[in-house]
């Protein structure tokens, strides 16, 4: 073995090839089957895609680095299930490009935060967390209420998501900017199109409390409120024993 190596380390190209082969094995065996084994991702026929406003909110969540302090992955541990709700299923992040499972909980898990707090609470909390949770060390995101949401290019966002596999229809892509405005303005003509395209359960609200303008706060709150509600799979399928 050492004699073989004695020859290998005299051959630069051979050494390069050896590194590539040896280093490729592990990743190939662990990653490739995840795309081919059917049980990896559960079936969830009721799963809906994110609305344009929620996509925009998700992008703000990414932009502000929320994932650095909040996970979106409830583990199969008893205390986590009791604290946050049913453990996360793979299917629930099927349309997440990229996933936001996170790696650190400086703040709590958010996988099922949707619906736990009112829109008013969410808006107040994001605007300055210490107004509602005095002990919090989360930053205040005051600019979210000040910034108007860029809705003009949401069609391109949906088209890019379709290119990577999310089933958006042509109609959804064409109406994306209007649907974003409609979802944040319930009593307007645009609002009806949102439930028509994304289902009756879609939350159409004054997320930031203001009619008319659509702010970045609207988008982020809409996204947070849908977390855990794209599918009921975690609630309807029996969960395995937790540890």
């Amino acid at each position: 073995m050492f004699n073989f190596h004695y020859r290998l380390e005299r051959n630069a190209i051979g050494f390069v090839l050896a590194i590539i082969v040896v280093a490729s094995i592990g990743g190939f065996i662990e990653i490739a089957p995840l795309f081919t084994i059917d049980e990896t991702v559960e079936k969830a026929p009721d799963m809906r895609v994110y609305t344009p406003l929620e996509v925009a909110g998700r992008n703000i969540y990414i932009r502000e680095g929320c994932y650095a302090c909040h996970s979106q992955m409830i583990r199969t541990l008893r205390d986590e299930v009791e604290r946050y709700g049913p453990y996360s299923l793979a299917v629930e992040s099927k349309y997440d490009h990229p996933m936001l499972w996170g790696s650190k909980r400086t703040g709590p898990d958010l996988a099922r935060v949707g619906g736990k707090y009112s829109n008013d609470w969410m808006t107040a909390h994001l605007n300055n967390p210490r107004d509602v949770v005095p002990e919090s060390n989360m930053p205040a995101y005051r600019w979210l209420l000040r910034n108007q949401l860029e809705t003009g290019d949401l069609g391109e966002h949906l088209a890019a998501l379709r290119a990577v596999g999310v089933p958006y229809s042509d109609e959804m892509i064409a109406n994306a900017p209007n649907d974003a405005i409609g979802q944040a303005n319930p009593d307007t003509d645009l609002a009806a199109g949102v439930t028509e395209r994304y289902g009756d359960k879609t939350d159409v609200s004054l997320f930031d409390g203001n009619q008319g303008s659509v702010t970045e706060m609207d988008a982020l709150v809409a996204y947070l409120q849908v977390l855990g509600h794209l599918t009921d799979a975690a609630h309807t399928t029996p969960q395995n024993e937790v540890e």
């Binding site: 990653i31 990229p98 996933m99």
Partner: peptide, 17 residues
């Protein structure tokens, strides 16, 4: 802005690989 080719569990595994 771009959207990653992988999603969910496959993306998680690729990311931590």
């Amino acid at each position: 802005k771009s959207y990653s080719l992988f999603s969910g569990v496959q993306d998680a595994m690729t990311q931590w690989w």
